Amino acid sequence: MGYEFSPADVAYLRSPEGDAAVAEVGRLALTAGSYLADVRTARELVGERAGAVLETVLLRRRAAAKVEEPGRWLFTDEALQQATPEVVARHRAERFAGRDVHDVTCSVGVDLIALGAVARRCLGSDLDPVRLAMARHNCAVPVVRADAVRPVSRGTAVFADPGRRDAAGRRRWRPVDFLPPLDSLAEVYRGRDLAVKCAPGVDFADVPWAGEVEIVSLDGQVREACLWTGNLATVRRRATVLRTGGPEWTVTDAEPEDCPVRGAGEWIIDPDGAVVRAGLVRHYAARHGLGQIDPHIAYLTGDTPPPDIRAFRVLEHGHYSEKSLRATLRRLGVGRLEILVRGLDLDPNKLRPRLRLAGDGEASVVVTRIGRTPVAFVCRAERT
């Protein structure tokens, strides 16, 4: 856990004196080697507020991965961990354009800023007085203290980003794993257009009230699911792929899903994780004229890969065994190897040392199965 801010800490940080203190401490390196000495320096400079100032400096440095101008933000450690990257927040806010919107779990205001930029009118609320004070510093949208499951607005579309209970290592999430629970939000705002951000591991069958489930990835990493209801929902399932400063695209279950199962072509394509998680592999394949190498495996193949992705040009392929793969890699002089596995109980980190790689070459190997037969595709990864 990070430093526990008090309302007095936030008031200090919002003052000219606090702003100057953060700037001064921000000049310190605060690296592993200098940290203890830097903490002593910070205490000499700031006194009893050193903890709040140091935490703010460290959080702003981490926040560069979430917000574009971290130097103006106030966060708590937990709020920063859960905060939506601005690219994702802006994408989600587009559906609320021109609406009256209430963010009922506004926290420190990352989503609130994105919503406020497009909404006709916007309101934020939260129960945590510290986060509310930080939100007032971070954004110009009005905020009030209120419980998300005790509505204080009428006639608005609603956005919620409930907290997560501690569930280390969990890949599947249940509605009760969130605070407030997903089903409680759905019941309280029944009849209103609602969007709920949650972990991408939620089981779609557990949220039958969601008109649409959207899985979002950013820069190749699956970030979240968003559950849309009412007029905000437009399809049943959607995968959205975002890139910082780059193109974005989406695929939905309203598109054709006719794609063949076929033998390996010139390329192996590993669809973006949002496509896989949303169950839209066949729709993505149909869009790009690809086929599946097995009807139950998410790897696709074709002679022309989709544009602007990292795909795998097949050099050799055949029945997989460690012995045969080791021999192939040795013959090709592969010393650096990326290992992708799907459909087999195989740990790449344990396999790699057993292959005894040697040479100056570099390759990727896709290990999977066709039917019950394990196969290996030795490839060269290329950006298309």
Rank of each mutant, 00 (worst) to 15 (best):
M1Y: 13
Y3A: 07
D19S: 08
A21K: 01
A21P: 00
A23M: 07
E24R: 14
V25Y: 00
G33H: 10
S34H: 02
D38P: 12
D38S: 12
R40V: 12
R43L: 08
L45E: 01
L45D: 01
E48Q: 12
E48C: 07
E48V: 06
A52E: 08
V53D: 02
V53H: 06
L59Q: 09
L59W: 06
R61S: 01
V67G: 10
E68C: 00
L74E: 05
T76Q: 08
A79E: 03
L80Y: 04
V87H: 03
F96I: 03
H102A: 14
S107I: 00
G109T: 02
G109P: 01
D111Q: 09
L112Q: 01
L123S: 00
G124I: 05
V130C: 12
L132T: 05
C139V: 10
P142S: 08
V143I: 06
V143R: 03
A146N: 09
A148V: 09
V149A: 13
V149D: 06
P162I: 06
G163I: 01
R165F: 05
A167S: 11
P175L: 07
L179W: 00
P181I: 05
D183V: 08
E187V: 04
V188I: 11
V188L: 12
R190F: 03
R190Y: 04
G191Y: 02
R192H: 10
D193C: 03
L194G: 05
V196E: 04
K197T: 02
A199C: 04
D203E: 13
F204C: 09
A205R: 14
V213E: 04
I215H: 11
V216P: 01
L218K: 06
D219I: 02
R223V: 08
R223G: 04
E224K: 06
E224I: 11
N231Y: 00
L232E: 08
V241C: 07
R243H: 09
G246D: 14
P247E: 15
E257P: 03
A264C: 15
G265M: 08
A285G: 09
R287Y: 15
G289M: 04
G291Y: 03
D294A: 08
D294N: 11
I297D: 03
D303I: 06
I309C: 13
R310Q: 06
R313A: 14
Y320K: 12
S321G: 07
A327F: 14
A327H: 14
L332V: 05
L332A: 12
G333F: 11
V334T: 15
R336S: 15
R336D: 15
I339L: 12
L340H: 15
R342F: 04
G343V: 11
N349G: 13
N349P: 01
K350N: 12
L351S: 07
L351M: 10
L355G: 12
R356Y: 12
L357T: 13
L357W: 13
A358W: 12
G359T: 15
E362C: 08
A363S: 15
V365I: 10
V365H: 11
R369C: 08
R372N: 10
V378K: 11
